[in-house]
Design a binder for these strands. Structure first.
Length: 567
DNA sequence: ATTAGGG
DNA sequence: CCCTAAT
């Protein structure tokens, strides 16, 4: 079933080359951890995120990295290709690289639809991926800068300078439009130079500036935050006032605060304030800030799922690789410091919400979601994260003490392929911020042909119980499908129904089906649903058409009366 | 691995 | 929706 490949690579480029031809045969020697992103290339040439089966595993050993591809060819075939290869430098985990890679992957994913076959996409050797190494640290675009606009530490820069990763595979080329914003392309650093007064700029302009400053796009719409980030980036200071943001020559002007040296804990705090920010944004910079932060971080459930942790012992590797990794946990990047002190940092797709867990092994409940696209899920998680700014704040303050059991490891997060329909804020980056409701409606209306991925995150996790990781409203099409399924296979045959009728709905487990059916049943037998309910029931959930309810009732009666006695 | 139920 | 017990 699954093909597992374990290999080590010598160099990024080499890796690419190798993967291009013999993806799985790579058994080179390398001391660098590499992260692969699995995708499959659909028949139409588009890329689809790897499914659970198509798992990517990054394994590390003391001296070298082992890549483990564990995927199941599923129904079709396949070759798996790596979308992005991340290599981390000795010292610092290059977040930059990571994020860009991620972005790239995301984009590709965005354009994808359904699966066809797995293919391993290799990145052209000369792709802009900088495989860390002293010399080519800067790109032409960036070279002319006297000063580093980036808050990154120099070694980080050296270590990995990632920019745009252009897909070379045909698959990559196919996408109708480059949903990818020109972000990665060539940032207009001109903006960075000279004096900048951020105070009265519109959000859009701020985002532009952000891009110019950090070389990548941001989805954050919060003015204050943007200003702050930009300022921090330009001044290399983390102690930035929220007002008076005028920057000249990378110095903060007119503010009471002087640009302090890279603070320590301050940064963490400020960064976390990102509004509905995407972890993504944080990720880059946060990591850039390079620092061994304390276990302080916002813990998002998604994260917990995608467990990542910091290990300070070379001998310590990835304990339970298979499980977690197989799940949604996408290892976007793994970095290992070569020297004595080995720090493994996993960058979670969450976009930068890089979380370091002292040591909490999340016992992931094994809930097999046979769905597709683990990547997408990540994406979604991002969305969710954004969706709840408040939540984030809360989370920020929350500290997970080692040993404490985080009871959140559960639901996988799903994502919806959102075709960015908005040039404004919506981007196709890792942290695409999308109006979920809109998105949903959109998708739903389009029909059930494609998955309706609704995902709504409204966990109220202050009360103490962070429940309900995600709640996706059932769409009408799903309901009808369910009813159909029940009529065909009978209530209780959920796995069957799941398999046969819900193949297109990647989420919705058999349990979900069962639950939904139960609810439908209740609804169908409730008297006069429309009347009594309407008055005080939150109109949150859709009103199920009477017709369907009647159908449900019929089926229920029919089935209850005729147990499979004779057969 | 699936189901049924409770929460 | 999540979790668990029982199959």
């Amino acid at each position: 079933m699954g093909t597992t490949v374990v290999g080590t690579v010598e160099d990024c480029r080499e890796m690419f080359d190798v993967s291009a031809q013999t993806p799985f045969s790579s058994t080179n020697q390398i001391g660098n951890p590499v992260a692969y992103k699995l995708v499959r290339v659909a028949g139409d040439g588009r890329l689809v995120p790897a499914t659970d089966e198509e798992i990517l595993e990054v394994n590390e050993t003391d001296t070298h990295a082992c890549l483990t591809f564990d995927y199941l060819p599923a129904q079709e075939t396949s070759q798996v290709i790596n979308l992005g290869l991340l290599r981390s430098d000795n010292v610092e985990p290059s977040t930059d690289q990571v994020s860009s890679q991620s972005d790239y992957g995301e984009e590709l994913l965005q354009k994808v639809e359904q699966d066809d076959r797995l293919v391993m996409v290799s990145t052209p050797p000369d792709a802009n991926i900088r495989c860390c190494n002293e010399n080519n640290m800067f790109d032409e675009d960036q070279v002319h800068h006297d000063h580093e606009p980036l808050p990154f530490s120099s070694d980080v820069q050296k270590g990995c300078d990632s920019n745009t990763v252009e897909p070379c595979s045909d698959a990559a080329s196919s996408p109708k439009e480059t949903a990818l914003p020109p972000a990665a392309g060539k940032p207009d650093f001109s903006l960075v130079r000279g004096e900048i007064c951020l105070n009265n700029l519109p959000i859009k302009a701020l985002q532009e500036t952000f891009r110019a400053t950090f070389g990548r796009e941001t989805t954050v719409k919060d003015k204050t935050w943007l200003k702050r980030r930009i300022t921090m980036g330009l001044t290399k200071s983390f102690d930035v006032p929220t007002t008076d943001l005028t920057i000249k020559d990378n110095k903060l002007v007119g503010s009471q605060h002087k640009a302090n040296d890279v603070g320590d804990d301050v940064r963490a705090t400020s960064l976390k304030e990102a509004p509905s920010s995407s972890a993504e944004d944080l990720s880059g910079e946060e990591r850039a800030a390079k620092r061994v932060r304390k276990p302080t971080r916002r813990y998002i459930e998604e994260l917990s799922e995608t467990d990542e942790k910091q290990i300070t012992d070379k001998s310590v590797l990835f304990p339970s690789k298979h499980q977690r990794l197989s799940e949604k946990s996408e290892v976007r990047s793994v970095s290992v410091s070569s020297g004595k002190r080995v720090t493994v940092t996993r960058v979670v797709p969450l976009g930068g919400s890089e979380v370091e867990v002292p040591y909490v092994s999340h016992v992931r409940r094994s809930r097999p979601r046979e769905n597709v696209m683990a990547l997408m899920e990540c994406h979604t998680s991002c969305l969710e994260a954004k969706a709840s700014a408040v939540e984030n704040n809360l989370l920020n303050s929350e500290v997970v003490s080692p040993g404490s059991v985080v009871k959140s490891a559960s639901g996988p997060i799903q994502i919806e392929f959102a075709t960015s329909h908005n040039n404004n804020n919506e981007e196709v980056h890792v942290l695409t911020e999308v109006d979920q409701d809109m998105e949903l409606d959109h998708v739903d209306s389009s029909g059930n042909s494609s998955d309706d991925y609704n995902n709504t995150s409204a966990p109220t996790m202050q009360g103490g119980g962070l429940r309900r990781k995600h709640h996706r409203a059932w769409t009408l099409s799903e309901v009808t499908t369910l009813v159909e399924g029940v009529s065909k296979y009978g209530a209780g045959k959920w796995s069957e129904i799941k398999k046969l009728s819900f193949s297109s709905y990647s989420h919705r487990t058999s349990v979900d089906l069962k639950d939904k059916w139960r609810n439908l049943l209740r609804a169908s037998f409730a008297q006069n649903p429309s009347n009594s309910m309407g008055s005080f029931k939150k109109h949150g959930s859709m009103h199920i058409p009477m017709e369907i309810l009647l159908q449900v009732r019929e089926l229920a009666e029919k089935q209850s009366l005729v147990p499979p006695n004779h057969r």
